[in-house]
């Protein structure tokens, strides 16, 4: 049994049929990436897993428990943390409070304090600005805050939606480094959505290629990277 299993999922926005039977699996300890053109349904897939959207058909299981019976806030408690597209930080809350909000479901005070320290170590910029309102951070800093806030939830599975969006190249590299470290050192399982397909296939163990709401290709990341179709469509052929 896989850690996270999505089977035959159909998700709609009103009449718009956004996901047309998506199936994917993520094993414990893996980094899996989801790539595809704009509007392919990558974000919709993550929202379906985290419970923001309800599919009309299909199933989502975490270690065999049916997630479609759980509201979004319960899914977080089960260890799936979704860092959404476009950061969505709390603009009027301080950086510190944003991080604390990420840990709002946790009762282990010592653990929360240790994780906050870990986030500050990872993103020293956030420590400097901890008293500042989240909305006054630069775009890149907000992205760091969004990731840090996600980590505060102590995820077993982290869903990252375009974490490198809008970041300077040097920061992009840093973000991918952090993803690698989270996975390697802390054993966090990661499902990564990225525009930057090359970098994503570089860190990932496996990948799925999404096209207009359906899975077009799947396989080990190394294979996808050399697949001519993928190279032509996503790696700038």
């Amino acid at each position: 049994m896989s850690l996270l299993e999505v089977a035959g999922v159909h998700t709609y926005y009103g009449n718009i049929h956004a996901l047309k039977g998506i199936s994917l699996a993520v094993e414990a300890g893996e980094i899996v990436t989801l790539i595809g053109a704009n509007g392919a349904g990558k974000s919709t897939t993550l929202k379906t897993i985290s419970g923001l959207l309800r599919p009309r058909e299909g199933a989502v299981h975490l270690e065999g428990t049916d997630l479609l019976r759980e509201p979004a806030h319960e899914i977080v408690r089960r260890g799936i943390v979704h860092v959404p597209e476009g950061r969505r930080i709390f603009a009027r809350l301080s950086v510190r409070d944003n991080l604390a909000a990420g840990a709002i479901t946790r009762d282990d005070k010592a653990g929360v304090a240790a994780d906050m320290e870990m986030v500050y170590e990872t993103f020293p910029r956030l420590r400097e600005r901890r008293r500042q309102a989240g909305g006054t951070l630069s775009g890149g800093e907000q992205q760091m805050l969004a990731i840090g806030r996600g980590l505060m939830g102590k995820p077993r599975v982290l869903l990252l939606d375009e974490p490198s969006m809008g970041l300077a190249p040097i920061l992009v590299e840093e973000i991918f480094d952090i993803i690698r470290r989270l996975n390697g050192d802390q054993g966090v399982t990661i499902l990564l959505v990225e525009q930057n397909a090359l970098a994503a296939l570089d860190v990932a163990d496996r990948g799925y290629v999404l096209e207009t709401g359906a899975i077009r290709l799947e396989g080990p990341a190394a294979e996808l990277r050399t697949n001519p179709e993928v190279i032509e469509a996503y790696l700038g052929g």
Partner: peptide
């Protein structure tokens, strides 16, 4: 309080608050 923090988070962004595990 934790509930107060949840109130502030929901007031700012309901969906993001749900993603933190807050029962909106």
């Amino acid at each position: 309080t934790r509930t107060g923090m949840a109130m502030r988070a929901v007031a700012e962004d309901r969906q993001a608050a749900a993603l933190m595990g807050i029962d909106v």
